[in-house]
Design a protein around this nucleic acid. Structure first.
Lengths: 210, 210
DNA sequence: GAGCTCTAATAACACCGTTAATTTAACGGT
DNA sequence: ACCGTTAAATTAACGGTGTTATTAGAGCTC
């Protein structure tokens, strides 16, 4: 029963309905279960109707990734509110919150940082990523500003090191590669402490050098 | 032209030929290009013949993963031969070699540590993984034995921290998430130094505590 | 040589992404 | 009030996929 001319709101709500159905499929039956046929079955429409709103299947997955990045960045910002104002505490809180958020929604995390992904980065997606990374970068930058970290350090590089550390733990855990006697939380704490002490030590050594 | 009864060698060489064709497809056209039809086309046989050697497509990919893990572990061992005998140097060499090996064969690395993978771990695969991780664990353990790292530290946990750090950098790079002014090699060095200084700092603090 | 087993090939099924052609409904102009 | 135009949805179709019977044939054992 086709109507003529949809409003912007109707279009975007249809896009969200498609994304909702797709995400439901991811959660219930894995990412490979996402298909135009199954989405249409959930929505009660024909299987070519979603093509009007997403030209390709990858575009649906990209929209899901953008959603995940936004929610993830918001979770990190929220976690930072409850942390002590010292650099070490804030950095540790960030890493811990990162792993916690990833574990609370592993399906979204897998979508976000899957290795086998084309590099189709929509502006929307890039913006969401920037938000998530920016949170970490701000903490470092303010620490550099207050002198808790040496003036020369590039906040962006250090932020990426912390991101990589947290992501490495999450990634190995999700890939079920961890063979540990301790729990995941303990490993995360060791990682966070090691990185924090590492940057502080490099600060001390540089200060000593002057 | 069917024959009766194949020798063990004939069977395993057929399995290897299938893996060779599959890996060629991965390198030339990406992981999604792996299909029984295309493998058979490369081998000049019917597309159901490979089913006699691998019950499911995932089994072929698992075999490729096992191959990749073996080669990767061997590369790490090789790199460790050329490193200074100090703990810091050896750990740094390991991280650098890890990233280099991953960058030299990103296709294999993607196969090894893809997030969206069923947890089908064959004994063959587990053994290969153990070999790769064991290399790192040995370095830590010997450092603990010589007193360069505190007695209490669990070599396995620290090895996993270093693994996660190196993997995190590689993983973000392969997922094209790094937005850096510096090169990847520089980021790796920062990560390695931070981790090494971190563990040494924790050593120092514990020694101070005694 | 008869019978049996192991290997390979052919056929078929259900599903997929994607495109083209077709129907249906609402809108604008007269 | 009608009609042409246009947007939305559907149906049909193509080429491809994993996987499972079913069938044909070569070699081994007796």
């Amino acid at each position: 029963m086709p109507r003529a001319v949809m409003s912007r709101d109707e279009i975007s709500s249809m896009r969200e309905a498609i994304c909702d159905a797709a995400m439901e499929l991811v959660r219930d039956h894995g990412p490979d279960a996402v298909s135009f046929r199954r989405i249409a079955a959930k929505l009660g429409c024909s299987y070519t109707t979603p093509y009007r709103y997403f030209a390709r299947k990858d575009d649906i997955l990209a929209a899901l990734r953008a959603r995940a990045f936004r929610a993830f960045g918001a979770a990190l910002v929220r976690a930072l509110g409850d942390a002590d104002p010292t650099v070490a505490a804030r950095l540790r809180a960030l890493v811990v919150a990162y792993v916690r958020a990833a574990n609370e929604d592993p399906d979204s995390y897998r979508l976000m940082l899957d290795l086998n992904q084309g590099n189709a980065r929509s502006p929307d997606l890039v913006a969401a990523e920037e938000g998530a990374l920016g949170t970490c970068r701000e903490v470092i930058a303010s620490a550099v500003a207050t002198g808790d970290l040496p003036r020369g350090t590039d906040p962006n590089v250090v932020a990426h090191v912390f991101w990589a550390g947290a992501h490495g733990v999450v990634s190995l855990a999700l890939a079920q590669q961890l063979v540990l006697d301790c729990t995941l939380d303990e490993l995360v704490v060791v990682m966070a402490d090691t990185l924090v002490q590492g940057v502080l030590a490099s600060t001390a050594s540089r200060n000593r050098r002057r």
